[in-house]
Design a protein around this nucleic acid. Structure first.
Lengths: 243, 243
DNA sequence: CGTAGTATTGAAACGGATCAATATCTGTGG
DNA sequence: CCACAGATATTGATCCGTTTCAATACTACG
């Protein structure tokens, strides 16, 4: 079904997509697939960064200077609310593009959750490339479109009233984001319970209770708080889809 | 501040945006501003539609055939959940582009809330134009980016725990969407309480109680259930920002 | 090995969902 | 123009789950 979607995109765009095609990464998100020329151009203008966990990549309201592409690790994009609370808008995984969806100023603060490696491209260089290369720009259009879809999924999660259901949906989402090479069945949870709460719109106590509830009812086991495994697939999926 | 953002976009893109510029409509959303040639091209390939309230424009999972631009009236974009419940992802106002953010299949069902007039462009014709016109494509990139931002705002609303606060944020959002010419201060609420509930993640009873609460505390008056006016601006804004 | 940040668990209270009854609005036909 | 019917909206009472406050347990890193 995912595969079908990718096909459909190619069909929609016809010949123009041959040089720069869509594809889905192993982590389930949409990845930029570039022609050799495009890769060279991007590589020539980008800097590779290696950042430890907790590093802030940029802050909300800062001037938009660079566009980033995540290569390894996990990051979080969040906003600080007037009350001091935080709402995490999205977690960023390898292959994700960020710093793109804002005009002149970054909208969110982006911070590394784990150690990460990123590619950083000056905003002007990228927009210059987009301007002169419709195929490349189409890649980004699709990328943003995909993020829009993710955002809508997030809204659906937030509209659920049951904490366990929200958590299950989040785990399900992470499952589709498994980086190739992860051991069978175990879902890595690099982020803290607080992060989960800020993403799911729950207090961290509720997150804790939700994990306990999933474990107690035998749907999922947790290992050390940062890994999970679905035990009862059928009931798990039923919960996920019990919207 | 909005104005500043628009400026920044132009600055980011430089000369390439001269022919096809960004602008903000009076309703606060981002509108496509096209060159004469682009307008002619679009006009030549689009059909104008006039639809009564409640008409379904397209259904989720239907094949993506056309892209739409709203001209008059209000629509809602929603998904039917397995349980039969609905979640409204967005309301669509004049100037909004929709049917764009999906690949091969529409993601949401779109239905007219009021009588609407739309422009409909065959998908292939539009993608053809985008392929050959980077400036035009950039318009759409920015448009989708803006929708992404709206989606994030929606997520923030949904993460609030207090019904009155959610409703106040929605009213505030509508206020920025006022179509030019609306009488001073009155916010039009063309959608039903049920629609509000489905957008805000509340039961319609809670929406009703929230309106009652806002009225009782003197922040807002409601007139016939489909118009509202902020009475105590200061306290209203305080509530909106009390995240 | 200890300390600080992180996570779990418990008890009480608040707020929204739900069920249920009544009221209002809208559009249609007499 | 009015009356009626179906849909939409308001209001009330109760239940359930999340939040909050608080105390304890765990984990990771120096």
């Amino acid at each position: 079904m995912r595969q079908e979607e990718a096909e459909a995109v190619r069909a929609d765009l016809g010949p123009s997509t041959r040089a720069a095609q869509w594809d889905r990464t192993t982590n389930g998100s949409v990845k930029l697939l570039l022609s050799e020329t495009q890769q060279q151009q991007l590589a020539a203008r980008s800097t590779r960064l290696s950042l430890p966990a907790r590093t802030i990549v940029y802050r909300e309201d800062a001037a938009l200077d660079w566009i980033y592409i995540s290569s390894e690790g996990v990051l979080k994009a969040f906003r600080e609310l007037p009350s001091g609370k935080r709402r995490i808008a999205a977690f960023l995984f390898p292959g994700d593009v960020f710093g793109l969806a804002e005009n002149g100023r970054y909208l969110n603060t982006v911070q590394a959750v784990t150690h990460v490696t990123l590619y950083r491209i000056p905003n002007e260089a990228l927009t210059e490339m987009l301007r002169s290369d419709p195929d490349l720009q189409f890649q980004f259009l699709c990328k943003v479109t995909h993020e829009l879809r993710q955002g809508q999924r997030h809204s659906i999660v937030l509209a659920r009233k049951d904490a366990a259901g929200r958590l299950a949906m989040f785990l399900s989402m992470l499952e589709n984001n498994v980086v190739a090479g992860t051991r069978s069945g175990w879902i890595q949870l690099p982020m803290s319970r607080t992060d989960l709460g800020e993403y799911l719109g729950l207090s961290l106590e509720s997150v804790s209770r939700a994990t306990a509830a999933l474990a107690r009812s035998g749907l999922v086991t947790f290992q050390g708080g940062h890994a999970a495994k679905v035990l009862d697939r059928e009931r798990f999926e039923k919960l996920v889809n019990a919207l």
